[in-house]
Design a protein around this nucleic acid. Structure first.
Lengths: 304, 304
DNA sequence: GACATGCTATTCAATATTGAATGACAACGT
DNA sequence: ACGTTGTCATTCAATATTGAATAGCATGTC
């Protein structure tokens, strides 16, 4: 007959697993180093496992501890979500709302929308989580997500807010010294800006049916924002959302050969409809995203 | 600047929310009633919310507390999952594994498989969670799930273990007094056993293209197991998995008119492949379910 | 009506937990 | 070589937390 460990011990475990150090973990959760040390010892004793190897350089997680990482992260995420949910009353526009979206959409689209919203509703605290994960609502890492694919999880409210056409763009200064390519072979003579690490969710970069790989790129980054900055800095030619490029005075090239479209969706847990601040943020994002991307009058699939 | 509440307070909150009583919650987590009272007060103070109305009859959750229910349940579930994951070493067949499945499959199929497995592996503790939810792996309520639909969530290992043909069955004693129907109208003169509450996941009960509703049923229950028991007790005619019915000496009726099939799937979080006890249970269930349902030699879609 | 039961509220002493301070040690920079 | 920095380990006193015990009250049963 064993009893469940005190949940305080779990919190300390999560912190040490994240920081690999008693001192750093203690600082991050506002306790002291000896307390964290004792918590880890108590947890190891309670579970009958050795969770960490202790050294002067910090604590190294054992395989046993690493096997608990996913559950520990889920627990920490759930605690954060609870605290966020408790951050304000139901029927007031106060408290925290967390939004997950990709880096470039966060900087170029979401931040301005939320900044404007906060002028009207200063009681709402927003957190913007930059992520390419497609399961962050599922993980409860975020309350609301902006996604370039249709969400299919149960228990969500989803709204299609537009269609974005991607394109190849370059800064006029770059094209001043390098005339725009009109064919795929001509493009290869240019400085192309693209991804570094191939990922399942990296968008297919194909021109005239020919896939381009990372070796084709003169400037590589997995950061959308860094790619956009390189384009803007006249570093070369890269992929960009049309709506973003048009606002940046970038020029399009090869518009007949490369024009994939992605649907833009906004999703939220449906039980958050009962909270005013979540509805307020969802509505503001819906309106703002539609204005930014919603240049095609297709009906939204579901509306709040 | 606020600091995150002690997670011990969250645990007490979850317990009180579940039990609606300080005393009962205290008993359930092995603390004392004054401690639970103080924890709730500390949490209310820390969050700036009134979570419960206190009365002699117990604690009534406020709307604020109810709005936290989903997150609180997710947190409790995550803590259970962590404790389960920590319940045994990685490379030994000891510790707890939790399996989610429907009631009738649990009783008729899973329990015998697991009982046999535990004779070989007595160090494995199994929990059988009876549920018709399709999102229990997602919610981390279970480590392994048996489902009658294909799982589509990311991060899962899924194995198709068979196809089950459903049929209308009755006990010979029932058919002795009521000759088997040969048409749908004849069926309506019989005592039909079926569901009580229509649910989205309730299987479509259609004979010759005509849907049957709860009003057609003489014996109604949302419990699969109760339905099966009524069939076995010669109470009437009801739907049953062929593989189960054939082992119960039940007789099939209207076999040409009603023969829907469902695929049987076994799913598990893929990160649990690194734990021996999860693999062992998954393999045993795969073998046992294939033997029970796998009467058609179609290839499994994914194998562990 | 009397008694049993079960709830929350409160008191107070015992125990558990905490963190400031210190020590030992290694790595790094000047 | 010396000083600085940052890690975990340890000690000890202060503080926080806990639970046994009790009180008050309402409900249900005989």
């Amino acid at each position: 007959m064993t009893t469940s460990p005190d949940w305080s011990l779990y919190r300390s475990f999560c912190a040490v697993l994240r920081e690999n150090s008693l001192s750093a973990a203690a600082r991050s959760i506002g306790l002291s180093q000896p307390t964290l040390s004792r918590h880890i010892m108590a947890l190891e004793h309670g579970l009958g496992l050795t969770l960490f190897t202790r050294s002067r350089d910090g604590l190294l997680p054992t395989a046993e501890a690493l096997a608990l990482r996913t559950e520990a992260e889920a627990l920490a995420s759930a605690a954060d979500a609870l605290l966020r949910a408790a951050s304000g009353p139901l029927s007031q526009n106060t408290g925290t709302v967390r939004i997950a979206t990709s880096e470039v959409v966060a900087a170029e689209v979401i931040a301005p929308i939320l900044a404007a919203l906060r002028l009207e509703q200063p009681g709402i605290v927003v957190e913007i989580a930059v992520s390419n994960r497609i399961d962050d609502l599922l993980r409860r890492d975020a309350d609301i997500a902006v996604r370039m694919t249709r969400p299919i999880q149960v228990g969500l409210v989803a709204k299609r807010v537009g269609v974005s056409e991607l394109g190849l763009y370059a800064h006029p200064d770059y094209l001043h010294g390098h005339p725009a390519p009109t064919t795929h072979p001509e493009l290869l003579n240019h400085a192309i800006i693209g991804f570094d690490t191939p990922m399942p969710y990296t968008r297919t970069f194909a021109i005239d049916g020919i896939a381009m790989t990372r070796e084709c790129f003169a400037i590589r980054s997995d950061s959308d924002m860094a790619q956009l900055a390189a384009i803007r800095a006249a570093g070369g030619i890269g992929v960009c959302h049309g709506s973003i490029a048009n606002r940046s005075c970038l020029q399009r090239v090869l518009s007949d050969s490369f024009k994939p479209t992605v649907e833009v969706w906004l999703a939220m847990h449906e039980d958050m409809r009962s909270t005013l601040r979540h509805r307020t943020v969802f509505d503001a994002l819906g309106t703002g995203l539609s204005a930014f991307f919603g240049n095609q009058p297709l009906p939204a699939s579901m509306e709040v």
